[in-house]
Every structure is written in C-alpha cells, then in structure tokens.
C-alpha cells in the first residue's frame, strides 16, 4: 500500500507545474550561467568550478525553496483544498500516508540534484577552463553529500507544514524561519552548530582531502537527529490531525 501511495504522491508532485518549473530551472540556470561566464573576462575565475558554484547556489536558495513549497503543498495545501482526506479514507494508515509524502519529496530532491549535476557538468564544458574530468568524483561526492542536509530541511519543513491549513501561510513561515536561521549566526556564531540550516554547504567537507572522519560523522549524526525528530514530531501531529 505504501508503494501505491508513494507512486500517487510522486505523480501528484510531478503534475504540479511548480515542480516542472524547478526542473526547468535546474537545467536552465547552469546553462545560462555557463553562457554568461563564457563572455565575462577570465570567466571571473569561477567558470572552472561551475558544478560547485551551482551546487552552492541551489543548496542555498532554490532547493530549500522547492522543499518548502512541496512540503506546504503536500500537507497544508491539501488540507485547504480538502484533498488530503481522499488518501486518508483509503486502506492505508496515516503513518504510511505521511511516509509516502516525505518519500515523494525526497525522490524529487534527489532527481533535482541529479539533473543539476548533469547539466552543470555538460554546460561547464562550454566555459573555457572547465577542465574537471579529474574532479568528477569530487563533484559526485559533493552532490550526494548535499542531499543529506536538504533531506533534513525537508523533514523540518514537513513538520512546520503540520501547523498550517493553508499552503501560503506554511510557505511564508518556512521562508521567514530559513532567512532568520541564515542571519542568526552572524550575531550568535555559537548557534550555527545547532542550526540545521547552516549545514547546507557541508558538502565542502567531503571533497578533496575532506574533513576528518570524526567531523563528518559528527555533522552527519546531527543532521540525522534533525531528520528523526522532525519526522517523529511530524507523524504525531499528522496522526492527531482532525479533518
């Protein structure tokens, strides 16, 4: 049954024009950036690592935005449009409905990251100096690592979405929290260790020589704990929802 609903949620997400829009951006932005860089003097020195530059850009802004939008639509938005109950009256438990919604968002996150990676690698060849055949493994590792903090942010968004019966309210709240979380470390640097939102570029720890294993494990466990907590709390709230 959970497979059936994962398919359903994936299909619903895909049928939303918004998702297709993000996919289009995932293709267009790297290509456009490559073209612009091509005409800039010396490519501004950043043409050589277009995949990393794009990863930075997407993990900082567009991918969190995608997660916020998808989470608020899948939960708050479906409450508002009275469609959440369509799935809930089928022979499937709420816990499984919740799991399959999270799974669908995760699947698209992975697809988007994959598409961005491939288009940046291809369009990077347009830029002179885009000679990183040797760095392909690094690029792949970085994109795979970037998935983890985004996944945790996705879980947190899903948790926040439980408090709203309208997708717009949920989305605005998530964006405000995200923006605040990105600014707070400027004032209270110590807090950045605790904030899941400051791990969006932890992938840099994986490339090249990489950070020591302890450091990686430490950050990974922290992100994992965010996933577990946000997921558990989300399930509880979702189970308690009265429609």
């Amino acid at each position: 049954m959970i497979i059936a609903n994962i398919l359903n949620e994936t299909e619903k997400l895909w049928k939303h024009n918004r998702t297709k829009g993000f996919l289009l951006l995932a293709i267009l932005l790297p290509v456009i950036s490559a073209i612009i860089l091509h005409y800039l003097p010396n490519n501004l020195g950043i043409g050589s690592n277009l995949p990393m530059l794009m990863l930075r850009l997407f993990t900082f802004s567009l991918l969190p935005l995608f997660l916020f939008m998808s989470a608020s639509e899948a939960f708050s938005g479906e409450v508002a449009s009275n469609t959440l109950k369509l799935g809930l009256v089928r022979p499937i438990t709420r816990a499984k409905v919740f799991a399959s919604k999270v799974a669908a968002i995760t699947i698209f996150l992975a697809i988007l990251l994959g598409v961005i990676m491939i288009t940046t690698i291809i369009s990077g060849w347009l830029v002179p100096g885009g000679d990183y055949a040797s760095g392909l493994l690094d690029i792949f590792t970085a994109y795979a690592a970037a998935f983890i903090p985004l996944m945790a942010i996705g879980c947190v968004s899903v948790f926040i979405a439980q408090f709203f019966n309208k997708s717009s309210g949920a989305l605005v709240t998530m964006i405000l929290i995200y923006t605040a979380a990105k600014f707070v470390p400027f004032i209270f640097p110590a807090l950045s260790v605790w904030s899941i939102f400051s791990y969006t570029n932890w992938y840099v720890l994986w490339i090249g020589n990489g950070a020591p294993f302890v450091k990686l494990a430490n950050s990974f466990i922290l992100m994992l704990s965010y996933c577990i907590m946000a997921y558990s709390a989300g399930v509880i709230l979702f189970e308690k929802k009265q429609l």
């Binding site: 605790w194 922290l222 965010y226 577990i228 907590m229």
Partner: peptide, 10 residues
C-alpha cells in the same frame, strides 16, 4: 521514542 532518540543524538 523517535523524538527522544533524535533529541539525544542532537
């Protein structure tokens, strides 16, 4: 339990 384990890990 998920919440608890998550909090401890965090």
């Amino acid at each position: 339990a998920g919440l608890g384990i998550g909090a401890v890990l965090l």
